[in-house]
Design a protein around this nucleic acid. Structure first.
Lengths: 116, 116
DNA sequence: CATATTTACAACCAAATGGTTGACTATTAA
DNA sequence: TTAATAGTCAACCATTTGGTTGTAAATATG
């Protein structure tokens, strides 16, 4: 099960390592898009864009519904959440936001947000 | 500059897409490690592990200090923070924690945490 | 000095990646 | 029925990746 999770992280991070695919996700975040619509902005063949979409699908980041000859794609954000969970394991190394927020909740009068 | 940021995200996510490299980062999060120490737990040649460390270095995730013949490696978490920034752009899609917290801070009397 | 240790580097290899084109299927429209 | 549209699939290609081994450099130790 751990290995399963790990291999999922592999394919998710791998999927995110390409600008074309991140751009597709960004547009999917605003709503459903067809394969053609997803492909249109990119300077590559439809077949190449289709492969990118399949990569996103295999990573679990995109779901597809076929209606007639049109393939509608929508984002599934759950793998993004898992990737974020992993990254947040390192949060203490770069950021004290959480600690500052906790401090703020304990002592709201001592709000450090003006000091920068 | 935008492209620069984007290509950095490329190499960072790419670096994170490998279990060996994520494992190395996990150990580096606990403190400095030499190349040999980083390589030891992995069933591969030192040369292969060295390549993984170089991948992490090129992604900006690891810095190296050479003292004598020993190379000390430490984590640089800033690219992780950038990756996390990117992922959080999608946070609203999977999680309403932030919105609920903001709402709570605005209207503490209207705490929705009971309703589910 | 000679030798062992730590690491990098180069050459090589198999597999995966990201792109192409061309042929094909399925569906819709004329 | 014929033609256009939406998309996949297979074959191919160049490049990158992740591993190997062997060699070499720099440093430490006997």
């Amino acid at each position: 099960m751990v290995e399963h999770t790990q291999s999922r992280l592999d394919v998710v991070f791998r999927a995110l390592s390409d600008q074309t695919r991140r751009s597709m996700l960004a547009r999917l975040a605003k709503g459903e898009q067809t394969v053609g619509e997803l492909a249109a902005p990119h300077k590559m063949s439809l077949a190449a864009a289709s492969k990118h979409i399949q990569t996103l699908e295999r990573a679990g980041l995109v779901r597809r519904t076929v209606r007639g000859r049109i393939h509608y794609c929508r984002i599934d954000p759950r793998p993004l959440a898992r990737a974020d969970d992993w990254l947040r394991g390192y949060e203490r190394l770069w950021d004290t936001r959480i600690e500052r927020l906790a401090e703020l909740l304990r002592h709201p009068e001592n709000n450090p947000s003006d000091s920068e």
